[in-house]
C-alpha cells in the first residue's frame, strides 16, 4: 500500500524532527508522514543512527552515586503509560493523538471547504482541511512555511499532483491554488508557522475569527 508516494519529507526536516528542533505543528505533519511512508521511516532511522553514533561517542560525565540505585529501585514502581493513539481510518496516530482520540469536528469555511483546528499557538497552527472535489482552496500566499499532507483524495496545483501520503512544502515564494481532484473529497493535514493570507472568500479582517 502507499507505494505511490512521490513527495517526501526533506532530509534536513527529518534530521530536525529526530533532534526535536522542528516546531510542534510541523512535527505533527512529519510524524504523520513517517507513519505512512516507508521511505521516510527508513530515512528517519538513518538519522537516528547518526544520533546514536554521536551519543556513543559523547564525552562521558560520571553520574552521581545514588542515580543508578534510584533507577534500579524504580523498575518495579507502578507506572501509568501515556495513552497511545493508534491510526483510525485515514487518520494516522499523530493526528489521532492531536484529536485526543475523537473524530474530527468540521467547521464550515465556505464553498464546501471545512476545517478542524488541531492546535494553534505561538509556533503556528495545524489543522485538518476538507475540500470537496473540484473545489479550490482559496488563493493564498504564506508568510512562512506550510506543510500539507494528503490523507484522502488528491489535489493539484501549479507544482503538481499530490495524492494520499504526499507532502507539499510551500514557502513565501509559492503563490499557489490547490484544487481538489475529482473523486473522494480531499482531506489534508496542514501546518503553518504563520497565519495564512487567504485572498478569496475570507476577508483579511475576518481571519482572526476563523483563526486562519
Amino acid at each position: 500500500m502507499m507505494s505511490a508516494i512521490t513527495h517526501h519529507t526533506p532530509d534536513e526536516m527529518l534530521a530536525a524532527y529526530a533532534a526535536g528542533t522542528l516546531p510542534h505543528v510541523f512535527a505533527v505533519v512529519v510524524a504523520s508522514h513517517v507513519s505512512i511512508c516507508v521511505d521516510c521511516r527508513a530515512a528517519l532511522g538513518a538519522h537516528q543512527a547518526v544520533g546514536g553514533a554521536i551519543l556513543e561517542g559523547a564525552g562521558k560525565v560520571a553520574v552521581s552515586g545514588g542515580l543508578k540505585a534510584n533507577v534500579l529501585a524504580s523498575l518495579d514502581a507502578r507506572h501509568t503509560p501515556e495513552p497511545v493513539f493508534r491510526r483510525s481510518g485515514i487518520y494516522p496516530g499523530p493526528v489521532m493523538s492531536a484529536l485526543n482520540g475523537r473524530q474530527p469536528r468540521w467547521r464550515k469555511l465556505g464553498m464546501g471547504v471545512r476545517q478542524d483546528i488541531l492546535s494553534t499557538g505561538n509556533d503556528g497552527s495545524v489543522r485538518l482541511l476538507y475540500i470537496p472535489p473540484g473545489q479550490a482552496v482559496p488563493d493564498h500566499g504564506h508568510n512562512g512555511l506550510e506543510l500539507t499532507l494528503v490523507l484522502q483524495g488528491s489535489f493539484s496545483d501549479e507544482t503538481g499532483r499530490f495524492g494520499v501520503g504526499d507532502m507539499e512544502i510551500a514557502d513565501e515564494e509559492l503563490d499557489h491554488t490547490p484544487v481538489a481532484d475529482a473523486g473522494d473529497p480531499c482531506i489534508c493535514l496542514a501546518a503553518t508557522d504563520a497565519p495564512i493570507r487567504f485572498r478569496a472568500f475570507v476577508p483579511r479582517l475576518l481571519q482572526p475569527l476563523f483563526r486562519i
Binding site: 529526530a18 533532534a19 526535536g20 532511522g45 537516528q48 543512527a49 544520533g51 546514536g52 553514533a53 554521536i54 551519543l55 556513543e56
Partner: peptide
C-alpha cells in the same frame, strides 16, 4: 531495524 544507541538516542531527545 535499529541499533541500541539509535533507539536510545531518539528516546533521549
Amino acid at each position: 531495524r535499529a541499533q541500541v544507541s539509535a533507539w536510545i538516542y531518539q528516546i533521549a531527545r
